[in-house]
Simulated scan of single mutants.
Amino acid sequence: MKTIKHPYYDYTLADALKLAKGIKYGVLTKPSDPEPDIPEAIDLVKKTFRLSTFNWITGRVALELLRAANGEDVKFTP
């Protein structure tokens, strides 16, 4: 896995994948639960972000990193 770090926040691709894993499996995530792949992680975080009723900065930052890792052209926002 590539090491990608957000230029404005202390957040990495590994953190974004852990967030997606937590969304997928819930708060009782087991170490043996596999991490989702990047396209699935994008889908999980995007759906959760869309359903949130507040400005979820962590979700936005995670999406930016996941999309960059997926080869998409991303404009990182502060």
Score class of each variant (00 low, 15 high):
N55M: 04
I4W: 02
P78L: 02
R67D: 04
I4F: 06
I57C: 02
A69R: 02
V27R: 09
N55A: 10
A20V: 13
P31Q: 14
F54T: 13
K21W: 07
T77Y: 10
V27N: 09
I4A: 01
K21F: 05
T58R: 12
S32R: 12
P31S: 15
D43A: 09
T3W: 11
T53D: 06
D15T: 09
T48P: 04
T53Q: 02
K5V: 14
L66E: 02
D43W: 05
D10S: 08
A14S: 14
D15I: 12
K5D: 08
T48K: 09
I23R: 00
K18S: 12
Y25M: 02
M1S: 07
T12F: 07
I57Y: 09
K18T: 13
R60H: 15
T12Y: 15
K75G: 02
P7Q: 10
A20T: 14
K47W: 04
A62H: 03
G59K: 00
N55E: 10
G26H: 03
F54Q: 07
V61C: 08
F76R: 01
G71C: 01
E40K: 10
G71N: 07
A69G: 11
R60Q: 14
E35I: 14
L66I: 06
D33S: 11
L51C: 04
T48G: 06
D43E: 13
K21M: 13
A20N: 09
F49T: 06
D33G: 07
P78T: 00
N70K: 07
S32E: 15
E72S: 11
K30Q: 12
E35R: 13
K75T: 12
Y9P: 05
R50E: 14
N55R: 07
P34R: 07
T12S: 13
H6R: 01
